[in-house]
Computed example of a mutant assay.
Amino acid sequence: MDHSDSAHQRRGALLAAFACTLVGASFTANSVLSDFPHAGGQAIRYALASLMLFPLVGRPGLAPLRTLGWRGWGWLAGLAGVGMVGFNLAVLAAERTSEPAVPGVFVGCAPVVIAVIVPALDGRRPARAVLCGALLVAAGAFTVQGWGRADLPGIAWSVAALGGEVVFALAALPVLRTVGPVLLSAAASAVAAVEALVLAVLMDGRGWLRMPDAGEGAALLWQTLVVTVIGFVCWYRGMQRIGPERATLFSGLIPVAAAITAPAVGAGGYGPAQAAGSLLVGTGVAVGSGAFGQRLRGRRRERVVASGAPGVAADARAPAPARRGTARGAGGAAAGPEPGPPGSPAKAPPAGRAPRAARSAPGDGAPSGAGPREG
């Protein structure tokens, strides 16, 4: 992995971590909206978010939506209905009969599910590091939140919330490749607003919406601007860079951020259990994202360079294209004298053939080719 690719991966990890931290901090805002019409509130939230996001795309940027076809719009409808509106309704329903920690624990298992499903869809085995990291993240989420009081309906709705979290990651993949993070967030928010409006009218009738008070208005504005507009775009940009398996690992930061911010509004405390769980989540993210492996490989490379072995230090510091160019000349012929057996003098090139100069690879001394495409 070269430096540009490493920086690309690091930016993706930071974006995913930032998005999940915003979502976790928004849990305190959700408690303010417990008495507000939920489906109607979601309809307003997503409608306002789409109105903010579409101008960022611009009219020329809307062209990819015409190429989605019925299948692409089906993925968008599933993403909005199950991963956005359905997820929020499932969490609310679970919290009516169980403590909030119960759906939080189930949603904390999303990294494990993603780590198994995504490789299976690609016809490969789960990466051992990602799976181990996902298990650590799930254990950390459980430690941070605890279990709490639960009943059968609460557990069933919590499982539904877990399904919504998984769909939120997986259903975006086919569309993300075509439309990009910003347009995806704008289109999904618009579809979610329509779906939430239909549910609101069916569930609450004429009372599907009312004027929010100051606290409810601030909470809706936070969900709209911070969580949806900023958080969604950062999440999908991060997932575009590092993939859903590693991006979902950072969802373990959601309960950690919620536990850290809860004391600010008197909704909980941050004690030894939360600190231990946060440490588990951080370890799981580091293991699953490959941070430990990259550090070990970097140290091993430094030891090889510092060992001073003949021909190793200089070769390790040289770019890969340069090593290939200096090892062989044009046509694959040896560029210099041919080595003989150990202790014997080097053989000269065949008579009548002058030694060919080593052909420099294109871009020697500078990064060759373009780096990873930005989202």
Rank of each mutant, 00 (worst) to 15 (best):
A172M: 02
A141F: 01
V137K: 04
G140M: 05
G148Q: 01
G207L: 12
T178M: 12
L197Y: 05
A187G: 07
A187Y: 01
L170E: 04
G207V: 02
E195M: 09
L184M: 06
A196I: 07
G154D: 09
L199E: 13
L135R: 02
G215P: 03
L184H: 10
A156W: 13
A188R: 09
A186Y: 11
W157A: 08
E195Y: 04
P181D: 01
A156N: 12
A150H: 12
V167R: 06
A193H: 11
Q223T: 05
D213I: 07
V191N: 08
R210Y: 10
G207H: 08
F168A: 12
A214S: 15
V191E: 09
A214Y: 07
V194N: 01
S185L: 10
S185N: 06
L131Q: 02
L220M: 13
I155E: 07
L152Y: 00
A218M: 14
V191G: 01
A156G: 10
V201N: 08
V167P: 00
L170D: 06
S158C: 06
V175E: 00
V198W: 08
T143K: 03
V175K: 00
A187H: 09
A196C: 10
A138S: 11
L184C: 00
V175N: 03
I155Q: 09
A196G: 00
A156L: 15
V144F: 11
A200N: 08
L176R: 01
G148H: 04
G140V: 00
V198D: 07
G217Q: 03
G140L: 10
V167T: 08
W222T: 09
W208E: 10
G163L: 12
G164D: 02
W157L: 06
A171W: 02
V159F: 12
P212F: 11
L173W: 00
C132V: 13
G140P: 04
A187E: 10
A160Q: 05
L221Q: 09
G215M: 11
A139Q: 02
T143P: 05
I155F: 11
M211F: 10
A171G: 04
L131S: 06
T224F: 09
P212G: 08
V175H: 05
S158R: 01
